[in-house]
Design a protein around this nucleic acid. Structure first.
Length: 481
RNA sequence: GGCGCAUUCGUCUAGUGGCCAAGGACACCUCCCUCUCAAGGAGGAGAUCACCGGUUCGAAUCCGGUAUGCGCUACCA
């Protein structure tokens, strides 16, 4: 058995999204699981649609997810002579022919066909020209079209979809070489897959219907074809094709939003593949060990961001405290309001980190979740409290708390608890009510990490200051007090 | 229009003729834990397995048809 070689062959016409990268993942996993090689090839044969920065984005996305390639990237635009040579050979051997029809004529032809409710397709006008007739077109650069057999049937066995067949008379003479000298996908991918020794072509299901053409090309070129495995598409929540417009984030965007690469990989692996009826958390190594084409589903999958978000929370909680603090620091530095002084103190961030590690689903939520730790002051708005006390009671409560807190020598979690629980009782308040009041004064919110831990991290000085501010706020609201 | 492929809870899926009056996960609801929010734990609701026929003692699983969805049908990939 020859060594398995797979490839990921994106075209740089946009930034990779979940669907594209899932194809890369499956190719990568299959190669790794078989001890094979994973090759990266950039299919940049459409100079019109080329997008600036797309190649960098593709490379960056793969690297971020740790889907490293063993060979490449190869660029098809640098390999034109191979395709041109193949096309020349096909023409010479009667498998292909130059076509001089103008784009204008093809357009009209198609419109005609649609109007007459005929299947659109090239009418093969140039297929039968003699050499003399071709001479008439001296000066115009033709395209090269493949001579598809007029009858017969192509059958092949897809590793995922099983037996697939297509009658030749439903395939028109497709273009293999454009007039600008660039190949179309069909020719380029066949030539390259052969030249690069690709053994397994794993690509999106949208290519399934084109595979018979490719098989025809392999045969005419005298190549033996690789195995094909088409992967189910990934759909947008609206069940349409995945695209930015319909809410499918690009890979780069996932990183910006604070998703972890290992979570993205794990989640993507589950889109169209399953190991069993229970397991769904897999490390990269487990994925490699378990991945198989048999586990690939036949149905298109809808990209479900909610589940990714849940899974990301899981991975975030799995991080070591140090690693999590490091990540947190970089996201806070980026996202915290500019009014917060930089550079951020890494030690302080490391103290904040454990308080929110299990409360976050994406790093993108970090700044919002922790801003009160970093702001100079917070707003005290008593109306936020569910069980509101009379303002007067609030004020006296805060004052008593302040006095007691001032006297506290060690401002740590357990000392704070030892002080505040009894204090609630002596003030004739439920502990929860006191704590909520303090929480609001200290954080400006009704939800935060546990109060005493939050206070310890905030530190005595900040806490006292914020309680004083809250007391003042009440006074300003009720001047007659 | 033609051709191809698919069709199990809202979503991702398990299931390859009896173990399935269909299992797991996300989301949702309830309860427990609890100073709030999370996390965690325990429950709940949610799928006549697209539909109709057939094969079989027996079908989500096999076959045929219909419907629906998606894809291909470009000098795009």
């Amino acid at each position: 058995m020859p060594k398995v070689r797979t490839r990921y062959a994106p075209s740089p016409t946009g930034f990779p999204h979940a669907g594209n990268i899932r194809t890369a993942l499956f190719n990568w996993l299959f190669a790794r699981s078989q001890g094979g090689d994973f090759i990266l090839r950039i299919e940049d044969t459409d100079i019109q649609r080329r997008v600036e920065g797309a190649v960098e984005d593709i490379l960056g996305s793969l690297s971020w997810l740790n889907l490293l390639w063993d060979e490449g990237p190869y660029f098809q635009s640098e390999r034109l002579s191979y395709y041109q040579e193949a096309a020349r050979k096909l023409v010479e051997e009667g498998h292909a022919y130059p076509c001089y029809c103008s784009p204008q004529r093809l357009k009209e032809l198609r419109e005609e066909q649609v109007k007459r409710r005929e299947p659109p397709g090239y009418d093969r006008r140039c297929r039968y020209y003699s050499w003399e007739e071709r001479g008439k077109f001296e000066g115009t650069t033709p395209v090269i079209r493949f001579k598809v057999p007029l009858s017969g049937e192509i059958q092949f066995r897809d590793l995922i979809y099983g037996e697939v067949s297509l009658k030749c008379d439903t395939i028109d003479d497709f273009i293999i070489l454009k007039s600008d000298g660039y190949p179309t996908y069909h020719l380029a991918s066949v030539v390259d897959d052969h030249l690069m020794g690709i053994t397994h072509v794993l690509r999106a299901e949208e290519w399934l219907s084109s595979t018979p053409r490719h098989l025809l090309l392999y045969e005419a070129l005298g190549y033996s074809p690789p195995a094909f495995a088409h992967l189910p598409m990934i759909l947008s929540p609206d069940k349409g094709k995945l695209s930015k417009r319909t809410g499918a984030p690009g890979v780069a965007e996932l990183w910006r939003k604070g998703y972890l690469p290992e979570a993205v990989v794990n989640f993507l692996a589950l889109l169209g593949w399953a190991f069993d009826d229970k397991t769904e958390i897999f490390s990269m190594d487990e994925l490699i060990a378990r991945f198989s084409l048999e586990g690939v589903s036949l149905n298109p999958a809808v990209f479900n961001l909610q589940k990714l978000t849940w899974m990301n929370g899981l991975y975030l909680r799995k991080k070591s405290p140090e690693e999590f603090a490091r990540l947190l620091l970089s996201f806070l530095d980026r996202d915290l309001s500019s009014s917060v002084r930089r550079p951020l103190d890494p030690d302080y961030v490391a103290q904040v980190a454990p308080l929110i590690q299990e409360r976050m689903r994406t790093l993108g939520e970090a700044a919002e979740a922790t801003s009160f730790f970093f702001m100079l002051e917070v707003n005290f708005d008593p109306s936020l409290l569910k069980k509101s006390l009379p303002l007067l009671k609030m004020q006296t409560t805060l004052k008593v708390a302040l006095e007691n807190l001032e006297l506290l020598s060690s401002f740590d979690t357990s000392s704070l608890e030892k002080l505040l629980r009894p204090l609630a009782e002596s003030l004739n308040l439920k502990a929860g009510d006191l704590f909520q009041l303090l929480r609001l004064a200290l954080t400006g919110r009704t939800a935060s990490p546990p109060l005493f831990q939050t206070m310890e991290v905030l530190g005595k000085e900040r806490c006292l200051h914020r309680i004083e501010r809250a007391i003042m706020t009440i006074e300003q609201n009720v001047p007659s007090l």
